[in-house]
C-alpha cells in the first residue's frame, strides 16, 4: 500500500475541568456515559489510531456527536488533544512551536468548512486569495494564482461578487478554491458538502473527484452521509462515541460490517452501486464468454449479464482473468446482512 501521510496515534480528547486525570479512567474501560455520570467529563475522542495514506481520499464518518469534527480539528491543532500523537510526514504536530504551527497551517494543510466561513466583506477573488495574503505573497501573484483556481472550480466571471450574492453551492466552491490555492498537499474537509442541496452536493462531489484525479492530494473528508462516504472515499473510518469502530475500503465495510452500529448504517444504501465484481468473485473461470473489469459495479454488471443471457462471467484485471462471478454470488452480495438476534443498538 502507498506511504502513510498522516498518522494519528492513541489520541484522546476529554472535555472538562481536569481532562488529563481522566485518561486513566478511559484507558481502564470507562465508557462515555459513565465518565459523564461519575466524573463530569465529556469523552470526545477515545484512543483513536488512524493511518492515512498519501494521495487518497480518507473519509471519517459518524453520526453527530461521534467526535468527527473534534477529530479533524486535531490534524491542524485547532484543538489540542488531551493525550496522543498527530504525525504529518513523520513530524509531530503537537510539538511544534507557535511559529512552526503557523507555517505548517499556511503551507501544508488547508481546510474547507461546513458553513463556508468566507469573509463577507471581501470579493470572491479576495476570499480565494486569503491564504496567499496570509502567506505574504505580492498582490499580483495572489490574484494570478487565485484566478487559476476560480477558473478550475467554475466561478469565472464572479470574481468581483461578494459571498452574499452567491448561492450556497457557489459559496462552497469559493471555499474549495481558497483551500486549493495555498497548494497545501493535505486538504481537510469538515462536512464540506453537508449544508448543500442533494443535487448541488452531487455536483460538488464530481468537482472534487475530478480535481483529485489530477491533483492527488491527501484529502481528509468528514461526513455523516454514508452515500457520500462510499462515493468519494478510498478509505473509510467509522467513529462512534469518539472511538474508531471500523476502518477499511468501502467494499469491506459494506460486505463485512464490524458490528450492528455499522450494519444499521449501511442497511439503506444501494449495495449494487457500491460493490464491484471483484469483491464477490470466486475462484475459477467462466465459459460464458462475458468478462468484466474488476472495478465494474454490480449495478453495471447485472444488466450486462441479463442482456447476454448468461449466469456467470469472468473478472479481469489488466487483461488477465483473476476469477469469476456467478449470479448467485452477486445476489448474495446485494442481500442485506441479517442482524444478530437480540442485540439492540440505540443511538443518542
Amino acid at each position: 500500500m502507498s506511504d502513510i501521510k498522516v498518522s494519528i496515534k492513541n489520541l484522546y480528547k476529554i472535555f472538562g475541568s481536569n481532562p488529563k486525570s481522566m485518561v486513566q479512567h478511559v484507558e481502564n474501560g470507562c465508557s462515555k456515559a459513565d465518565l459523564l455520570a461519575n466524573h463530569k467529563h465529556v469523552l470526545g475522542l477515545n484512543n483513536v489510531n488512524i493511518n492515512i495514506p498519501a494521495r487518497q481520499i480518507q473519509v471519517i464518518m459518524g453520526l453527530s456527536g461521534s467526535g468527527k469534527s473534534t477529530l479533524i480539528r486535531h490534524f491542524n491543532r485547532l484543538i489540542e488533544p488531551t493525550a496522543g500523537q498527530v504525525l504529518v510526514d513523520g513530524e509531530d504536530v503537537l510539538s511544534m512551536s507557535e511559529d512552526q504551527l503557523r507555517d505548517f497551517r499556511r503551507n501544508k494543510m488547508s481546510m474547507v468548512f461546513q458553513k463556508f466561513a468566507l469573509l463577507p466583506h471581501r470579493t470572491v477573488i479576495d476570499n480565494v486569495s486569503f491564504g496567499l495574503k496570509i502567506k505574504g505573497l505580492p498582490v499580483e501573484e495572489q490574484h494570478e494564482r487565485a484566478q487559476k483556481w476560480i477558473d478550475r472550480v467554475g466561478l469565472t466571471g464572479f470574481e468581483q461578487n461578494y459571498p452574499a450574492q452567491l448561492s450556497g453551492g457557489m459559496q462552497q466552491r469559493v471555499g474549495l478554491a481558497r483551500a486549493l490555492a495555498t497548494d497545501a498537499d493535505i486538504l481537510l474537509m469538515d462536512e464540506a458538502f453537508s449544508a448543500l442541496d442533494p443535487l448541488i452536493r452531487n455536483d460538488m462531489q464530481d468537482i472534487l473527484l475530478k480535481l483529485q484525479d489530477e491533483l492527488h492530494k491527501t484529502i481528509i473528508f468528514i461526513t455523516h452521509d454514508l452515500d457520500e462516504a462510499l462515493r468519494i472515499g478510498d478509505n473509510i473510518v467509522i467513529l462512534r462515541d469518539g472511538a474508531v469502530i471500523q476502518q477499511g475500503a468501502p467494499q469491506e465495510i459494506v460486505l463485512d460490517p464490524a458490528d450492528d452500529y455499522v450494519r444499521d448504517f449501511i442497511k439503506d444504501i444501494n449495495r449494487a452501486r457500491v460493490l464491484n465484481v471483484e469483491s464477490v468473485m470466486e475462484e475459477g473461470t467462466s465459459d460464458s464468454g462475458l468478462s468484466f473489469a474488476s472495478t465494474t459495479t454490480l449495478e453495471e454488471a447485472l444488466p450486462a449479464m441479463a442482456a447476454a443471457n448468461v449466469t456467470s462471467a469472468n473478472v479481469e484485471q489488466d487483461g488477465t482473468v483473476i476469477g469469476m462471478v456467478t449470479l448467485n454470488d452477486m445476489i448474495g452480495g446485494i442481500a442485506r446482512p441479517a442482524r444478530h438476534e437480540g442485540e439492540g443498538v440505540t443511538y443518542r
Binding site: 491542524n76 485547532l78 504551527l101 503557523r102 507555517d103 505548517f104 497551517r105 499556511r106 503551507n107 494543510m109 488547508s110 481546510m111 468548512f113 458553513k115 466561513a117 468566507l118 469573509l119 486569503f130 491564504g131 496570509i134 502567506k135 481558497r178 495555498t182 481537510l188
Partner: peptide, 12 residues
C-alpha cells in the same frame, strides 16, 4: 467560524 478559518490558514 470565520475566525477559525483564519486560524486554519495560519493567520497571526
Amino acid at each position: 467560524e470565520v475566525l477559525e478559518a483564519a486560524d486554519a490558514f495560519g493567520a497571526s
